[in-house]
Design a protein around this nucleic acid. Structure first.
Length: 586
DNA sequence: GTTCAAGGCCAC
DNA sequence: GTGGCCTTGAAC
């Protein structure tokens, strides 16, 4: 159980991949403890042999939505202070500290160039360098290049879930390419003009990644030394794989940042979303930066009414409720016009807003949210004829959940808590916050209710806010309407989100006092804010608070629905989403 | 001048 | 089609 709220030690240990998880020498390839979901696990060998390539053919429905990138969910990583859960999705790469796992000790860390050797996240072969966004082997690099350059379309005659490892990577190019995308290889890094040489925009990202890995290695080396000192005498350390405290060290790959659309800006040349939110960046520069990009995800609804977007052919995101009256050039990098909403004339003057709320609002990263949504949808529908929309929704929800965890982990009050307490709070509030987030995206960022994917399928974005239950739409709209009546703004939203998260009544919290204090501070700030900034709305604070049980009720029904779908085998397994659902029912 | 991630080449 | 090695050229 990934999020075993009752047994943290289990939580922290079970989701670590074995050191040699991706050993290319292993025909089986899959780690013994890899939580590969049954429906996505390796099919029998006979299936591999039935996989074939078919150039020029269209894909059949792609059901392999829950991918290996969900297989290495790692709560210890998520909640670890200082860890940088960038994407919220572990892209599946396993880092292997050089040397046999069975003999590794802290002092034995190799002195290789970067201090680490790595395995290709696609097939487990030896990595030859950074290729198309991440460290891969030479053959997967070549495979990815050929596939994209030649616009190859493959089919899988098995279950589209073929296991890819070094020995079997050639058997099913369909699944291999899917895995390439899932682990984060970037289509846009393949040059359309086939120009040779030079560097691309990912260079600085690669550099950062190297530095980060080195830093992580050093940190882990120190931690291992400490742990070694504490455990050797206790007989806890063993050279047996799987029993060593070091043997299961699994370092998350941080280079793959699906949230940051590399299509609209270079990871390094663009300011961080936080910088944008902080107002440290001239947003007009951002507009300029993306001004010559053709939109790919478009609002196609009627003016003034958020309705739908279309994902276009060249993989870029932009959108606005007013897109039909606004130049795409002004929309590209700020898809949902967050800055306008936050800083627009409708917002109260910042002098009236408490520093606490100002900080809250400035830390909101809606650009990241939309980028991650776009990237996920792009990757999941690239080259696909048809995808399972429910599974796609689960994936998006899962990603949103990761983002939420990341937000919480870095938030005031919450970040000071112990992991156990953090998990309990999140376990209790995650679905409410998902619903609340969707209301926010819809109300304040003009998120439409529908989107047309690359492949022409309509994706029901509203279902994200309904947690997959269409019949909740009326309830959802009712809540939204009530909030609109209250002139619910971004400050209200973020305060309410904190109030949902910092619930002192959650059972079993060890540091209840701290949670209570945080809750009360936010509550007080929100009360003052509503009274100061919205004096014309009588009792706004209480009216808003009265809506929280309604949100909770909606979220609870969504949870039930998802849980039942999961139990009936209709929902993906091995996702943070499902782990949360399970954890609550323990 | 060096680095290194692109694309290209070609034996298999 | 694959994958190991080579060439290229912008960034440093």
């Amino acid at each position: 159980m990934l999020l075993d709220m009752e047994n943290h030690s289990t939580l922290l240990s079970l989701n670590m991949s074995p050191f040699n998880a991706n050993s290319g020498d292993s025909p089986a390839g899959a780690p013994a403890s890899s939580p590969m979901p049954p429906q996505y696990g390796s099919p029998p060998i006979s299936h591999y042999s039935s996989c074939q390539q078919s150039m020029g053919m269209q894909h059949h429905q792609q059901s392999m939505m829950m991918s290996q990138n969900m297989n290495n969910l790692d709560a210890s990583y998520i909640f670890s202070p200082g860890a940088n859960a960038i994407s919220g999705v572990d892209m599946g790469a396993s880092y292997q500290i050089s040397g046999p796992a069975t003999s590794l000790t802290a002092g034995d860390l190799p002195d290789t160039k970067d201090g680490i050797e790595e395995l290709c996240p696609v097939c487990g072969d030896k990595v030859s360098g950074y290729h198309y966004g991440l460290l891969t082997c030479e053959s997967c690099k070549g495979f990815f290049k050929r596939t994209v350059q030649n616009k190859k379309v493959y089919t899988c005659v098995a279950e589209r879930s073929c296991h890819i490892d070094k020995t079997q990577r050639k058997r099913c190019p369909f699944c291999r390419f899917q895995k390439c995308l899932e682990v984060g290889m970037k289509l846009e890094a393949v040059r359309a003009d086939r120009m040779r040489g030079g560097r691309n925009k990912f260079g600085p990202m690669y550099k950062r990644d190297r530095a980060r890995k080195l830093q992580m290695m050093r940190q882990r080396q120190l931690a291992a030394q400490t742990l070694r000192g504490n455990t050797l005498g206790d007989g806890m350390y063993s050279n047996q794989p799987g029993t060593s405290p070091f043997a299961n060290i699994h370092i998350k790959q941080e280079i793959q940042i699906p949230q940051v659309s590399s299509l609209t800006s270079s990871p390094d040349s663009s300011p961080s979303p936080i910088a944008v939110a902080l107002g440290q960046v001239n947003t007009s520069a951002l507009v300029q930066q993306g001004s010559n990009q053709q939109p790919a995800l478009q609002i196609v609804g009627v003016p003034g009414a958020p309705s739908s977007m279309v994902m276009g052919p060249d993989n870029k995101l932009w959108g606005s409720a007013n897109s039909t009256t606004t130049s795409p050039h002004s929309l590209s990098p700020k898809a949902f016009q967050f800055d306008t909403v936050v800083q627009g004339s409708s917002a109260p003057p910042s002098s009236k807003v408490s520093p606490l709320i100002r900080d809250f609002v400035q830390a909101i990263d809606d650009r990241e949210w939309q980028n991650s949504l776009y990237t996920l949808l792009q990757n999941q529908t690239y080259n696909q004829c048809e995808v399972d929309l429910f599974e796609l929704m689960c994936k998006v929800l899962d990603q949103n959940l990761f983002s939420q965890v990341d937000w919480a982990r870095n938030s005031i009050f919450f970040k000071d808590l112990k992991v156990d307490d953090q998990m309990k709070l999140l376990q209790h509030s995650w679905s409410d916050m998902l619903v609340l987030d969707h209301i926010h995206q819809r109300m304040h960022n003009n998120l439409p209710d529908e989107m047309t994917l690359h492949n022409g399928q309509k994706f029901d974005l509203l279902s994200l806010g309904l947690l997959g239950v269409p019949s909740l739409a009326d309830h959802f709209n009712d809540i939204t309407a009530k909030l609109q009546e209250l002139k619910y703004d971004v400050s209200d939203y973020i305060c309410v989100k904190f109030l949902l998260l910092l619930n002192p009544d959650v059972r079993g919290i060890t540091n209840k006092k701290h949670v209570q204090e945080g809750y009360e501070q936010v509550q007080q700030a929100l009360l003052e804010y509503t009274v100061t900034c919205y004096p014309q709305i009588q009792d706004k604070f209480n009216k808003m608070m009265q809506l929280l049980p309604e949100i909770h009720s909606l979220a609870a029904r969504g949870e039930e629905h998802l849980y039942h779908k999961h139990c009936s085998g209709s929902a993906p397994t091995q996702t943070l989403l499902m782990e949360m659902l399970h954890a609550k029912r323990k």
